[in-house]
Simulated scan of single mutants.
Amino acid sequence: MLVRRRALLGSLVLVVLVAFAGVLAYVTRDGRETTSPTAASASSAGPSAPAASPTPDGHPKELPGPPSTHDPIAFAKAAAVALWSYDTRSSSQPELVASLHRWLTSEGQFVDADSVDRLVPSPVLWGRMADSGQFATATADEAHFPDRFAKALQADPGAITQAYVYAVTVSGKQSIAWNGSPAGGAEDRSATLAVQCRPDRPCALAGVLPTVAP
Results as ranks from 00 to 15, higher is better:
M1C: 03
M1G: 09
L2I: 04
R5T: 12
V13N: 04
A25W: 10
V27D: 11
V27C: 11
G31R: 11
G31C: 05
G31E: 12
G31H: 07
T35R: 02
P37I: 03
A40R: 04
A40E: 05
A40H: 07
S41E: 05
A42V: 02
S43M: 05
P50S: 15
A51W: 15
P67C: 03
H70E: 06
P72H: 01
I73D: 02
A82E: 02
A82G: 04
A82Q: 02
L83Y: 02
Y86H: 03
R89S: 09
S92H: 07
Q93M: 13
L96N: 00
R102Y: 01
R102G: 15
T105M: 10
S106Q: 08
G108F: 00
V111K: 01
V120M: 08
V120E: 05
S122A: 15
A130T: 04
S132I: 14
A140K: 06
D147W: 00
D147S: 06
F149H: 07
K151L: 08
A155M: 10
D156W: 09
P157T: 04
P157H: 07
T161V: 13
T161K: 12
T161P: 00
V165T: 14
V168P: 07
S171V: 15
K173C: 09
Q174L: 07
S175F: 05
S175N: 15
A177L: 04
N179R: 15
N179A: 15
G180F: 11
S181D: 15
P182N: 13
G184N: 10
G185M: 06
A186G: 03
A186E: 12
A186D: 06
T192A: 01
L193V: 05
Q196R: 09
D200E: 07
P202G: 08
V208M: 10
V212A: 10
